[in-house]
Design a protein around this nucleic acid. Sequence first.
DNA 1: CATTTTATGTCAGTGTTGTTGACATTCCAA
DNA 2: TTGGAATGTCAACAACACTGACATAAAATG
Lengths: 167, 167
Amino acid sequence: MAESGSQSSESLLFLTDEQLRRGIEAMFFAYRGFTADPDRILEQHAYGRAHHRALHFVARYPGTTVNNLLDILGVTKQSLNRVLRALVDDGLVDSRVGTRDKRERNLYLTQSGTALEQELSDAQRSRMRAAYRAAGPEAVAGFRNVLEAMMDPEMRKHFSDSKEPAR
Amino acid sequence: MAESGSQSSESLLFLTDEQLRRGIEAMFFAYRGFTADPDRILEQHAYGRAHHRALHFVARYPGTTVNNLLDILGVTKQSLNRVLRALVDDGLVDSRVGTRDKRERNLYLTQSGTALEQELSDAQRSRMRAAYRAAGPEAVAGFRNVLEAMMDPEMRKHFSDSKEPAR
DNA sequence: CATTTTATGTCAGTGTTGTTGACATTCCAA
DNA sequence: TTGGAATGTCAACAACACTGACATAAAATG
């Protein structure tokens, strides 16, 4: 991938504290933009980012268990449970007792859950698409490579597995 | 900047929802990694991310005013005030009545404030540097371009101005 | 000079999201 | 049958955001 430039990695990778600081601030400001659109939608439904994250990963892994979500989201079960309960009570998430292991709950989005997840997802994808277009194709690969390198290693599996999952 | 690839932008910028979803998850997981190291340090000092952000931008703009910080951080004055008061009370930030305009407060880091900010900054820069090194120089430019395009336009000024500020 | 606006600080109340700790239930597995 | 895993729930608490209201000082404006 890449390495199409004329200069070697070493000569370009002299990183001043100033350059790193700019990268840090870019993450800060960009993450605000990244969450801004979904936040506005969530507000209308009296939900927060925690609900968005739950909806996202239930949509991503239909039938996932609570424990799997806990691992991905990195919060306590009490915290996740509060959020999931609200979504289940409101009829956005269906929590079915596991067939193989009846202690587990398999989580699915209902029709209205799918609808909200789509609405949130569309908004977030729209901004991501615009940013990708503005930055250009090479930037997209670089963006993802830096982000992946910035993750905690344990999290990388959630990101790396199923490179292009069954579609 | 870039465009050194052999394919045109258009052919590479066919973005599937799947690719966009991966970008979204990359942001989510990477931001967690991005804040993980400072969070651990802050915990020991009974501070949170809000304190880190305040320290960062006071260090970045010594003598800045409360109003300017409010604009950058995008929180309410009550929220910022709580954080600033703690930092001032603990002797990490010096709040001096403005000379030109006495309504304003000019904010500076004290010696111990500088020390903590350095500690936090070092940790965060260290991870950023590692990510940059792992991803390579082309990735760095792409990373920053995508992030900048993802920001809300109003925020871009805080990021773009003083490209390489007086050093 | 009087009035208004601006910058800041503060108090009270509320909501979301996270945390610990404790305890109950269900059920797989040794 | 006992132990432990998976889940759910209750209570309490903390960080960090919010709104609304009010106070003070000083600049700006008429």
